[in-house]
Design a protein around this nucleic acid. Structure first.
Lengths: 238, 238
DNA sequence: CGAAACTTTGAGACCCTTCAATTACCGTGG
DNA sequence: CCACGGTAATTGAAGGGTCTCAAAGTTTCG
């Protein structure tokens, strides 16, 4: 599941000195249907969470950055797949260890629950994008989303210059399956954002943000996080 | 947030003898942006959870049935709106009461967390529908979703005859905003399902399922719940 | 350096949307 | 109980955005 990682995810200390795994792009960390006995924490790199339909269609649910947790599930089996999109290192622990940690420390439990809610809000944002936004808008949101996640993961100030250059280790197909589009549409939409002077492509896996205000305007959000969360219009009953 | 209600949501006992509110269709229970100091439980009727964009676009996130909980949020403000779509009765409690209940009873806490994960899985299903399915498929899923939720809410056996007749108290626009479509498309897709002998419309707010196998085939799921959760194909790395 | 894979761009088709008109539903009042 | 008016739902026709199919260009990596 997608997942933010603000400072205080203290429960992540269960991964201190945990065994680590090295993943190459394309390597799977968990397959849907597998037993969910282990939980994970991203040490470095980038991973992708997705859900498959029986006919092979795929919805990417989010991307995972360093200090993001993997292992949310209601049942004892994962119903989503997690795989690396960039070379990555992942720490793993038995789920029971986490469960004990949470049970014995209310602050950790609290931090965990709060993380779960952040994941849920990310899913709500994704649903809003998929259901309501156009292709160009979705891509603008995506760029801001990546920037936001890089910022959380690096703890760099929000206006830092280096956040204007973004790495895109995933393929166009991955982006397409995240945004509910086809890869050709993703390419075309990138071209349009570039023509509008909002971004500049640097090769095919890096871009530079030229007009963040324009992107925010197009996306309809100030930051990626919390669009329309503070106040909003709603259907008036005459 | 959408929400299933299997038997053991024992934490709902905090709503015993709680004050109740009566809502008419269109009445809001919570507005996005409002303080989240209260939590709620649906006693009867049907409500709808939605998220608004600043330009007025709306994504409906789910529908709420009796014994569904309202009040999930990471922050102290709600970022979604909940309103009645049918005449409803809702019980309310101060959030602190629930917090104490959960803190003092591990079983209740466990049940609560499990409910949160179910909500999350519903959001994942929604994202999959919005991103990957066609209009007709989405509507087929919607019909099965309603049936599934009615079943959970009534505790009637899965093959019960009465689950073949469904009430649709919400408007076509509500359905459209749930499925990421326009109301005309919803109408047309209903017509197509009817022409395909899968459903029969009875007035505009009731329908009868004629071919549940066909709907499941079209939706790509056996039941509404857990499509592709058990096992799934996934991208092979050549 | 060269081949394979990925990305971009183009042209045409299709599905959903938009705009518009008709029909059905439903609450109100006679 | 029926007539009426307003709102919601359905259906039709035309348009637009995204998808499909195809080819050219670029990147990556052995």
């Amino acid at each position: 599941m997608p997942n933010d990682a603000p400072a205080g995810d203290i429960f992540l200390d269960v991964f201190d000195q945990a065994p680590q795994r090295v993943l190459a792009p394309g390597d799977a960390l968990v397959h849907a249907g597998e037993s969910a006995s282990d939980v994970f924490n991203i040490v470095s790199g980038m991973l992708m969470v997705s859900r498959f339909g029986r006919d092979g269609r795929r919805q990417v649910l989010g991307f995972l950055f360093p200090n993001n947790f993997v292992g949310l599930t209601a049942t004892e089996k994962y119903f989503f797949t997690v795989e690396a999109v960039a070379p990555s290192i992942v720490a793993s622990r038995n789920r029971d260890l986490l469960t004990e940690r949470l049970a014995s420390d209310p602050a950790a439990e609290q931090a965990f629950v709060s993380m779960v809610f952040r994941v849920m809000e990310n899913l709500v944002d994704l649903a809003y994008s998929l259901g309501q936004r156009t292709a160009r808008e979705r891509l603008a949101v995506f760029v801001l989303y990546l920037r936001h996640r890089y910022r959380l993961s690096t703890h760099v100030p929000d206006d830092d210059e280096q956040l204007l250059t973004l790495e895109l280790p995933m393929s166009r197909t991955d982006i397409a399956d995240f945004l509910g589009l086809k890869k050709e549409t993703v390419s075309r939409s990138f071209s349009q954002l570039e023509a509008a002077q909002m971004i500049e492509r640097i090769g095919s896996h890096r871009l530079r943000i030229l007009d963040i205000a324009g992107l925010r305007e197009l996306a309809g959000v100030d930051d990626f996080a919390s669009p329309a969360r503070l106040e909003s219009p709603h259907v008036a009953k005459p």
